[in-house]
Design a binder for these strands. Structure first.
Lengths: 325, 325
DNA sequence: GCCGCTTACGCCATTCGTAAGGATC
DNA sequence: GATCCTTACGAATGGCGTAAGCGGC
């Protein structure tokens, strides 16, 4: 059994059982992979992949178990490499962050500018995508961290830690009737307007739907986008009122818009950071986490990383008051 | 990085940093190991082993971490092989049990005779040794199961499950004054006699010492041995009274001795079965466990195997009443 | 008929064993 | 001086790439 063989079967699965595509992604030849997969199967005496003629059609029951263990082995191999780097070049390395537009644009800039100042030799990469893509990237090991508000819980091999709570604001043009509102905003004020907000599955959208549903209201959503910048653009066009994360209002750039606090109308959402369970984290990674969420010290993160169930991890934070943005 | 390289560094550590001895045990050449260790160190850019001239003197800090992860990787590799076997030859394989004389001689025979009848194709090996040796064998992967009463808790990478409680008996020759005793045995009856019992660290010896210490008594221990058969021999010689596990009295063979129940004088001891955390257990292994301890069903064992802390595992059994032997 | 996996073959890298060298205790 | 690790070298093995074959869709 060779580590490459394990790598190959994992990657073949990641490439939807297409060996040719796998070969391209790994910059190697297709027959090479094919042969190694076969050799592994011969050695183990079992089929990892089911075949119809010469096509791979599915993963066998035994194959699923083997691939799962292979992933864990390869993750530990990466940990060994990381340990070695940590002992030779503690301030050098890579940091891959997978996150959504909202975080990348509004929550992370301050953290990152401070971080790269302290660690100029760490090459930092941001991968933007949907919450699902983000979780998958972290789960596969393509990203060290996943930062998002939704969908992270779907991947059980991630450790997820709460970072901060955030609330929503309703944004309107200065000439909009609601801009002159003297009293507290009500859910009806919003429900009677055409709404521009996030796509489902993004940036706490589910909390928004829940608030309307709780009142038996059917919001009139005319337009959705994955990020607040696009939403603001269409609010400026007069398409409707926007509902976005409060932190997405920029006091300097958005002077033509008025933000009305709506934290009393919608439950706060929680942004989380996730990484692979049992992963070895470089010292600069611990520091990154703590810069993003000061309560997540190295000790807390290490403790959480030893727990297997997300439920147990969540218990660590029941008495912690998170910052609100 | 190759799996063999990881195997080599682990084995070199197991052989007290003696590469030549390691080579012998692995049936390979010493320079081969030496070179692979070096190549791994070169690839990682760190030293795993500290050297003084050409002798390996110690494991570096980084090396400790690397070796720990290597062990975990190799354990998972074994799991993959076990999964493969389970899918091809479910009733074939090996079962290595490391245990003490007491278990092998008095607790296991019934279980094993039933087991080999159902699984004639499983080759069963018993490794006898001290509790420490047993734990180490299981921890290293040389044994699938460790069964003992003491010392298992010293190895944190083992899952330990309670199997049964057992009590002690005082044994004397038929012509001994205590053999005629009409009342309940007291701790003083025992303390005033020369005692023959187990060596420290064996078969619940610590519980025995505790009971005397609690009464401020200093037992007069004249002879110790690791097994009850030897103890009985010296009781027969008139060396003193024996204190042994009650199950170690054989009604048919030991007719020249009298056993006096002492369960009220000493706390019961608990025999446990241990295996490596996260190990994949063959179906016949689950069955073996359950034959030995009926309350340890496959489901219970699997659940325990998912927990990281022994404390959490122990909690699974607080409401379970174990059999008493 | 195209796509995609398998087989065949040759080159190159790597591993392993033997033998000799050098350092430590 | 004995033990033990390192270096050197040759044989065998194995991985990988190119080219051809062949079975599905």
């Amino acid at each position: 059994m060779k580590l490459q063989q394990l790598r190959y079967i994992v990657e073949v699965l990641n490439n939807n059982l297409n060996v040719s595509a796998t070969a391209e992604n790994l910059y190697t030849s297709q027959p090479g992979i094919s042969k190694q997969v076969r050799m592994l199967e011969d050695e183990l005496g079992i089929q990892v992949f089911g075949r119809s003629g010469k096509h791979l059609t599915h993963v066998t029951a035994a194959g699923k178990e083997v691939i799962e263990l292979s992933k864990q082995i390869l993750a530990k191999v990466e940990s060994i490499k990381a340990i070695a780097k940590e002992h030779t070049l503690p301030d050098q390395g890579k940091l891959n962050i997978a996150t959504t537009h909202t975080q990348a644009r509004y929550a992370l800039p301050n953290v990152i500018s401070g971080f790269i100042q302290k660690y100029p030799k760490v090459s930092l990469h941001m991968h933007q995508g949907s919450p699902q893509q983000i979780s998958e990237a972290a789960s596969r090991g393509d990203a060290d961290f996943a930062i998002a508000t939704e969908a992270l819980h779907l991947y059980s091999d991630l450790v997820m830690l709460p970072c901060y709570h955030w609330n929503r604001s309703v944004i309107v043009r200065k000439d909009h009737p609601l801009a002159q509102l003297k009293r507290l905003l009500t859910i009806n004020d919003v429900a009677t307007q055409p709404i521009v907000t996030y796509v489902f599955g993004f940036t706490g959208r589910s909390e928004l739907d829940k608030a309307f549903a709780a009142q038996g209201l059917e919001p009139h959503i005319v337009f959705t986008a994955t990020d607040a910048d696009v939403i603001k653009t269409y609010v400026r066009l007069g398409l409707g009122v926007g509902v976005i994360a409060s932190m997405a209002m920029d006091a300097e750039l958005d002077t033509d818009l008025v933000a009305i606090d709506a934290s009393h109308l919608f439950d706060a959402s929680t942004t989380k950071i996730g990484f692979r369970k049992g992963a070895f984290l470089r010292s600069y990674m611990y520091e990154f986490i703590q810069r993003f969420a000061p309560h997540l010290t190295k000790e807390v993160v290490e403790q959480a990383n030893l727990l297997r169930n997300q439920d147990d991890i969540d218990k660590l934070f029941v008495n912690v008051t998170l910052p609100v943005r």
